[in-house]
Computed example of a mutant assay.
Amino acid sequence: MRGEPVILEKREIILREIQYWRRSKLLPEQYCDFLTNLYNDDKEIKDSNPVSLKNLGQGSVKVWLFGFGIISLIFLISLYFSVFPWPLQLATALCVLVVCYGYAALYRDRNLVISLMLAGVGSVLTLGFGLWMISLHKLDPDLWRPALIAFCGLLWCVLGFTLRIGLLQYCGYAFWALLYAGFFGDKRPDASMLELELLWLPLCVLMIWLSWLLHHRVAGVSGVFLGVGVSLWLMPEIDALWLRQDYPDWVPLLLIGKVAVGLALLFIFRKKWITWVAS
């Protein structure tokens, strides 16, 4: 009888592992069902997702009270954030972000959907809290908005790499590209198309080269770098259309032509870059 709790604990570990295989598509669905039925004596799979309908239906009063407390806290912060002193505002924002990103890391291997949702909420709140505090305290937007963009870009790049969330990492590089475009837009507002091509295309080549260089060395970054490089391929024309005023009339045609060339190159070299991304 002493070994029975150990056996039950091992069975629970095996069942959780099977659920992870099911969510991650590591095994076909029918194999997961077979293994679950083999190890599960209760004929009922415990769902590790705390917000699933099954767990909410079977949840205790404590679960619902906890949810009520979280929702009330969100409304409380939303209503009274503006009257907090700025140290408390900063501490509140940091606590919320730590909770979001911390639980995103915690659920990364247990429930990918919840992890992505929490990371997305944390990212939106990072930008939202920053813009809100700049507006509340009437800070110089020409200084603090670029600083916020730089901070968000760096934070998302680091967290995207750490949590293995490619989209978050891509958004970080996109914010740095936005900062880069804004800086040179102020310095050279009348830049020619040749200057814009020389401004962006070397970065495009650099990111694609890094995608090739790191696909065997660092997991999870090759696809991000390739996506950033492909986006930078179109940035000269996007820069001219969105950030410049007196752009030539043929720029939209050039953009369409570069889209066609880019798709053709992706098709021709599809076996190579798919290998990079999949590695």
Rank of each mutant, 00 (worst) to 15 (best):
Leu214Thr: 11
Gly102Tyr: 13
Met1Pro: 05
Trp242Ser: 13
Val218Cys: 03
Ala119Met: 05
Leu226Arg: 11
Gly57Phe: 08
Gly102Leu: 09
Leu253Ala: 15
Phe129Ala: 10
Leu201Met: 15
Ala93Ile: 03
Phe161Gln: 12
Tyr31Ser: 08
Leu196Gly: 08
Leu254Phe: 10
Asp47Leu: 07
Ala191Cys: 00
Ile18Leu: 01
Gln30Ala: 12
Tyr80Lys: 14
Ala181Met: 12
Leu79Ala: 09
Leu254Asp: 05
Ile71Thr: 15
Ile274Trp: 07
Pro252Thr: 12
Glu237Tyr: 15
Ser60Tyr: 03
Asp142Val: 09
Leu243Pro: 06
Leu206Thr: 08
Leu253Thr: 02
Ser82Phe: 10
Arg188Ile: 02
Leu56Arg: 11
Thr92Phe: 13
His137Ile: 05
Pro236Ser: 06
Val61Ile: 04
Asp142Lys: 09
Glu237Leu: 10
Thr275His: 14
Val230Arg: 09
Val228Phe: 13
Ala147Tyr: 08
Phe151Met: 08
Ala105Gln: 09
Leu234His: 13
Leu127Asn: 06
Leu97Arg: 10
Ala119Val: 01
Ser231Phe: 10
Asn37Ile: 00
Pro248Asp: 05
Leu234Trp: 06
Val218Met: 04
Val205Gln: 00
Gly227Trp: 07
Asp239Pro: 02
Lys187Val: 13
Leu118Lys: 15
Leu168Ser: 03
Leu196Pro: 03
Tyr80Ser: 07
Tyr101Gly: 07
Val218Trp: 04
Pro202His: 09
Arg2Trp: 01
Ala150Lys: 02
Gly172Lys: 07
Ile274Asn: 13
Trp86Cys: 00
Pro141Lys: 05
Pro202Asn: 06
Arg145His: 03
Gly69Tyr: 15
Ile134Leu: 14
Ile165Pro: 00
Tyr31Ala: 09
Pro50Val: 11
Tyr39Trp: 15
Ile256Glu: 02
Tyr107Ala: 00
Phe269Pro: 10
Val224His: 00
Val63Gln: 10
Leu139Phe: 15
Leu97Ile: 09
Glu195Pro: 05
Leu148Cys: 07
Trp21Arg: 03
Phe175Thr: 01
Val6Asp: 09
Gly172Ser: 02
His137Gly: 02
Ser82Arg: 12
Arg270Asn: 12
Leu253Ile: 05
Ala260Leu: 14
Asp190Lys: 02
Phe129Val: 05
Cys157Met: 13
Pro87Ile: 09
Lys258Asp: 05
Cys95Trp: 10
Leu206Tyr: 14
Trp200Thr: 11
His137Asn: 11
Pro28Gln: 12
Gly69Ala: 15
Gly59His: 10
Gly153Lys: 08
Phe161Cys: 05
Met117Ala: 11
Ile268Lys: 11
Tyr247Pro: 01
Leu253Asn: 02
Ser279Phe: 01
Cys32Phe: 00
Leu243Cys: 12
Cys204Glu: 14
Leu125Lys: 08
Val98Gln: 11
Lys258Tyr: 02
Trp209Lys: 14
Arg2Val: 06
Val96Asp: 04
Ile45Lys: 00
Phe68Ala: 15
Val221Phe: 05
Tyr39Gly: 00
Ala219Ser: 04
Leu90Ser: 08
Gly257Pro: 02
Val124Asp: 03
Glu9Val: 04
Leu112Tyr: 12
Val113Tyr: 07
Leu265Met: 13
Phe81Met: 04
Trp250Phe: 14
Ser78Trp: 06
His215Gly: 06
Tyr173Pro: 02
Trp132His: 08
Leu112Gln: 11
Tyr31Asp: 14
Leu27Phe: 09
Arg244Gly: 08
Thr126Phe: 13
Leu206Lys: 08
Val96Lys: 05
Met1Gly: 14
